[in-house]
Amino acid sequence: MDWTSWVISTVSRALAFGVPLLWGTLGEIYAERAGVVNLGVEGMMILGAFMAFAVTQSVGSPGLGLFCAAMVGGVAALVHAFLTVTLRANQYVAGLALSMFGLGLAGLLGRGWEGKPLSSTLPYLTVPGLSRIPVLGPMLFQDQTVLTYIGLVLAVLLWILLFRTRWGVAIRSVGENPATADALGINVTLVRYLCVVFGGLLAGVGGGYLSVAYRPAWTEGMTAGMGWIVIALTIFAAWDPLQAIWGAFFFGALYHLSYRLQAFLAPELLKLMPYFFAVVVLAASGFGRARWRRRAPAALGVPYVRGER
């Protein structure tokens, strides 16, 4: 087996598998940058997956399906925002509840939708011209959906927004020191609501990708833990949208290689590989001088009450 086929399949699969992770992670980065941990990603993704499938199957438009997936993710996130920002509930508990609620609700609504192939799926693209480039063409410009490219552009735009605009400063200051932000006239509650809901929109699209493109069918629990990988990737990416690209695709590549390399290495070890790297990164982030700790939003997980410190 020559090396080009290895490189091509690894990169191509890394992109395809990394898409839902990238979208979910970009959303979670925004929520956490504003100081709100949302462990409900798994729930928002599965609701998005179900909604995208149901709408696409009924109407025949994957685009509309993905739009509705974003909406349902956004609504679920709105509930989380209401609980954690307005009612100041414990963010971790509320997020866990959202995950369980989403899994349960999607399973209930999904009764009767299982075992049906999707009539019209989100098409895989072959980019004209670019796909003919040797190696690079099949690697990057074939067998991907439009969500791969939108996701990449979105990551860059979100990085610019976060680090190069006044809005980004507002979001980050709410996550770092909400009292000061409040004193400067930033509406802490509004910023947190917007960021959490935005995170839900992206998680919904990530889930929708699974059911209308990646594996076009609905089955209960089909996200199978991706939402939790997103939580880990958010830390892995050090709350930076550009690093989320590498994180998501690195994880995608590891995931693909864990099956590709089975012919040479013990499958039990390979199965551990992605999680092993996640643990390594989390451990590295625990050391005081590591960049990660400096970059974690200081007010992450802390409800803001005006006048309290």
Binding site: R13, R215, T219, A224, Y259, R260, P267
Partner: peptide, 18 residues
């Protein structure tokens, strides 16, 4: 190829792609 799960569509997909 072993996926070490009874039910994990993503794992089954990547194993098939491999």
């Amino acid at each position: 190829r072993w996926i070490y799960e009874w039910y994990n569509p993503a794992a089954a997909k990547e194993a098939t792609e491999a």
